[in-house]
């Protein structure tokens, strides 16, 4: 059994929270640069210009890219032959709390009924998968409320199929309009169950924006959805244009013969995530 020090895990998580909130991922930056060049509207171009300037400024000053530093979501792959003393949950939570405090990140977690802020951004939302071997991989995503509020899950009838999926996704982005800070990124979960579809939808947002799905059929579905959504013309910040969505990432899972679960996780352009491996 490999022992991984809790203090090492906490320190890495704290660093990751600060770094992800202050440094725009390179793949997102490349999309902004592409948008600045190719967007068809002046208003849309201006938004890309501002977002690039914002990214530079955040990196220099270590101010967060966005004041909504999100709930802290973690995807953990823990080897069956590895353990973290005191538990991986506790180590991640301690690191998150330290990172949000020392990095001057906003704490956005509250009681759902009294709306009282928990004060330290706890709880961290932690998904753990046990995997073979003795490695530990932790991916962190800062998920803001504005885009999360525009996300939806639905249980389609199997007869609705691909056409039904496309219709729901396009409708969702149309209704969300300017609210989730477009250009957005869509994580789509197709199949699974009522709780599993949204889980894989959100996790799909960890992929690089410019990667290609290894399954050519799914890659084609992603390209088709992206083109359909961009026909909406909502554009950056809803000001009109061809860049409503930067990328569509689909995750699929087998589902019940009676069901076609569909989850659409809307992510904003401030797509902050990082990972660390032990």
């Amino acid at each position: 059994m490999r022992e991984i020090k809790a203090a090492d895990v906490s320190a890495a998580v704290a660093r990751m929270c600060v770094s992800a909130n202050t440094k725009l991922p390179d793949d997102v930056r490349r999309k902004f640069e592409e948008g600045l060049k190719n967007e068809t509207t002046e208003a849309g171009k201006e938004i890309f210009r501002q977002l690039l300037e914002n990214a530079d400024l955040a990196f220099e000053t270590k101010l967060p890219l966005c004041q909504d530093c999100g709930l802290a979501i973690f995807y953990v792959e823990l080897g069956e032959d590895a353990r973290v003393e005191g538990g991986v949950n506790a180590a991640i939570t301690a690191g998150m709390v330290a990172g949000y405090k020392d990095g001057f990140l906003r704490k956005s977690s509250c009681d759902p009924m009294t709306r009282k802020n928990t004060g330290d951004n706890t709880p961290a939302i932690i998904h753990i998968d046990l995997v073979p071997g003795d490695r530990l991989k932790i991916s962190y995503m800062a998920k803001g409320g504005g885009s999360e509020n525009m996300s939806r899950v639905t249980m389609l009838a199997p007869s609705q199929g691909w056409e039904g999926i496309k219709k729901f996704v396009v409708q969702r982005v149309a209704e969300a309009g300017p609210n989730p800070c477009p250009p957005v990124i869509l994580g789509i979960g197709i199949g699974g169950t009522f709780e599993y579809a949204p889980k894989i939808a959100k996790k799909a947002l960890l992929r690089k924006l410019d990667d290609t799905h290894p399954d050519p059929k799914i890659a084609a579905m992603e390209a088709e959805l992206l083109a359909e959504v961009n026909k909406l013309g909502i554009g950056p910040m809803g000001l009109g244009g061809s860049y409503t969505c930067l990328a569509v990432k689909i995750a699929m899972a087998p589902c019940h013969i009676a069901s076609l679960p569909l989850a659409v996780n809307v992510q904003c352009h401030s797509a902050r995530h990082e990972e660390v491996e032990f």
């Binding site: 938004i47 501002q50 977002l51 300037e53 914002n54 400024l57 955040a58 000053t61 101010l63 967060p64 890219l65 966005c66 004041q67 909504d68 906003r106 704490k107 956005s108 802020n117 004060g119 504005g146 800070c181 910040m237 904003c268 352009h269 401030s270």
Partner: peptide
């Protein structure tokens, strides 16, 4: 501009809490 939090902060030259301190960021 949503998501341009660092950039917009440049235009804010002073800030003080005048009510509901207990709400933290709110």
């Amino acid at each position: 501009t949503g998501g341009a939090g660092a950039l917009l902060s440049k235009c804010i030259t002073a800030s003080k809490i005048i009510a509901f301190d207990e709400l933290g960021p709110e």
